[in-house]
């Protein structure tokens, strides 16, 4: 079995299994930890609404904080958006999703993808630079932060290499690209990348629990 056959076959297969298994394990295992029963009289009873609202409001820094966190905020947005554009609108990727989901959608021209991908990598590099140089980030960072950075960056790098055919034979590069995505999927449930899933319940909770007290959070 060649590397590419492994990557596209059993590798992908198992990466998906670990991905799904790990996310379910972590999500359910967190959710089912004993809840705290709230006996106090709520000030407001529309907690659900406040929770849902927080999912939206925490997407933007409130005005008061805007000045101090704008770099993190906007670089975060640029990174996520450019990453999702490359992930969902590069034509070969659409083919990949089509083989899984059975549906496809129009892609973007390769030139656009190349530029957006370069932006994504540049943002990641800038964010790593910041993590390494900013005293706060350096202090609070752990292995997870660096591994998570690496496994998100590798698919972009290998993707560029496979697209441009640099650094090896195409099937090797394609295999490495797919393997790097598999690495990302395998790491996803165990590191901080899980935030992509947990951000929703987490934001909901703060909105609901502060909302219960009459505080917009």
């Amino acid at each position: 079995m060649s590397l590419l056959d492994f990557a596209r076959g059993p590798g992908l297969h198992w990466a998906f299994i670990i991905f799904v298994f790990g996310i379910c394990w972590r999500f359910v295992g967190t959710l089912l930890i004993a809840r705290r029963i709230k006996l106090s009289t709520p000030r407001r009873t529309d907690n659900w609404l406040m929770g849902l609202k927080a999912i939206e409001t925490r997407s933007w820094p409130v005005e008061e904080f805007h000045r101090v966190i704008r770099f993190q905020h906007y670089s975060g947005y640029i990174w996520h958006i450019s990453f999702f554009i490359v992930l969902f609108f590069f034509q070969p990727h659409i083919l990949f999703f089509k083989s899984i989901l059975g549906i496809s959608w129009p892609g973007l021209p390769n030139d656009v993808i190349l530029v957006v991908g370069a932006i994504a990598v540049a943002t990641l590099v800038a964010l790593l630079g910041r993590r390494l140089s900013h005293p706060v980030l350096r202090k609070i960072s752990n292995v997870d932060d660096y591994i998570s950075w690496l496994v998100t960056t590798l698919p972009l790098i290998t993707g560029f290499m496979a697209f441009a055919h640099v650094g090896g034979r195409y099937e090797t590069l394609l295999a490495l690209h797919i393997l790097s995505v598999e690495l990302l999927m395998v790491w996803f449930p165990f590191g901080k990348l899980i935030h992509a899933v947990l951000v929703v319940p987490s934001r909901f909770q703060i909105g609901a629990s502060f909302g219960r007290r009459g505080v917009r959070a």
């Binding site: 990557a7 297969h13 998906f16 299994i17 298994f21 379910c24 359910v28 295992g29 083919l95 990949f96």
Partner: peptide, 21 residues
Amino acid sequence: QGQWGSAAGLGTAAAVGIAAG
């Protein structure tokens, strides 16, 4: 396109994951 396995396989993975959690 890759061979991502089967819906049944992923369903099992999800079920086992939920059970583990």
